[in-house]
Every structure is written in C-alpha cells, then in structure tokens.
Amino acid sequence: MAFLKNRISVPLVGSVIVLGIIGIIGAFAGDPIGFLKNIVVFALVGLAIYFVFRLIRRSNPRNKEQQAFIKAAKKSKKRLQTKGGEQSTKSSSFGSLTSLKKSKTKKKSPVHLTVIDGKKGKKKNRASL
C-alpha cells in the first residue's frame, strides 16, 4: 500500500473508514429492515454479476484451447523432469528409498483411446482372381 507511506493520507484514510462505520451504524439504527434489504439486494446483484462474468469467460473457445495447451505443457514438463530424475537415480548407486517409491507409485492419467480390431491377421487371397 504505497498510499499509506504518505503521512497526510493515513489520517485521511482513517477518517474515511471511521465515517463509513458511523454511516453503517446510523443506517442500521434508523431502519434495520431496510438496511438488511439493501445488503441482501447488493449481495444478490454482486453474485449475478459474478456468475454472468464466469459464464462469459468460460464460453470463450480460445480460453479452452489455452487451458488445454497449458495442461499439456505441464504434463510434458513433468514427464521430462521424471525422465531426468530417473537417469540421475540410476547413475547413482545409492538412490534414496523415498525417491524410488515416489516414481513407482505415481499413477498415470488414463489414456482415452480404444483399440479397433480389424482384419490385420488375415492375408488377402490373391490367387482367387
């Protein structure tokens, strides 16, 4: 907070905060039900704006592609780091037990590919021509 470094702004900010607290207490003392209604309406409008903003931001196709690229880059970086880590543990004769356990117990994400069985094993009967 750079503005608090100035000695003049500290009392100014403090007085604004104190006046705000006095105003909130005065509004609550004058009409408590109206004050609570205003708070509820303000919160509902804020939530509506927040959800609309999230909906707009999520529907952007570039954002989805960017997230997929970032995820793939992180996976690639982890894969390269684990390959480098395995080489260093293999080269050293005394690898720590915890590093070996971590590399073996690490689960890979499931690959969403299906195998399509074709007629690869059968050879064409070319003599029937």
Rank of each mutant, 00 (worst) to 15 (best):
M1W: 01
A2Y: 02
F3G: 08
F3M: 09
L4W: 11
K5N: 12
N6R: 04
N6W: 02
I8D: 05
S9H: 06
V10R: 15
P11L: 10
P11D: 10
L12R: 07
S15E: 01
S15H: 00
V18T: 12
G20K: 07
I21A: 13
G23Q: 10
G23I: 08
I24P: 05
I24V: 15
G26N: 06
A27R: 08
A27Q: 05
A27D: 03
D31W: 00
P32I: 00
G34H: 00
F35L: 00
L36M: 03
L36P: 02
K37I: 03
N38M: 02
N38D: 10
I39Q: 07
V40Q: 00
V40Y: 00
V41C: 01
F42C: 03
A43E: 03
L44F: 05
G46Q: 01
A48P: 08
I49C: 04
Y50L: 05
V52G: 14
V52D: 05
F53M: 04
R54S: 12
R54F: 07
R54P: 14
R54A: 11
I56Q: 12
R57F: 07
R57S: 11
S59I: 14
S59P: 08
N60W: 00
N60C: 03
P61K: 10
R62Q: 07
R62A: 10
Q66I: 00
Q67A: 06
Q67V: 06
A68M: 13
I70G: 06
I70F: 07
K71Y: 07
K71S: 10
K75H: 11
K75Q: 11
K75S: 13
S76K: 13
K77G: 03
K77R: 06
K78S: 10
K78C: 04
K78D: 07
R79S: 09
R79N: 10
G85E: 14
S88Y: 12
K90Q: 08
S91P: 04
S91E: 09
S92T: 13
S99N: 15
K102D: 13
S103R: 12
S103E: 09
T105H: 05
T105Q: 07
K106M: 03
K106S: 10
K107T: 12
K107L: 08
K108A: 13
S109D: 14
P110V: 08
V111P: 01
H112S: 06
L113E: 12
T114W: 06
V115T: 14
G118P: 10
G118C: 05
G118H: 03
G121V: 04
G121I: 05
K122Q: 11
K123Q: 11
K124V: 13
N125C: 08
N125V: 06
R126D: 13
R126P: 10
S128V: 11
L129K: 15
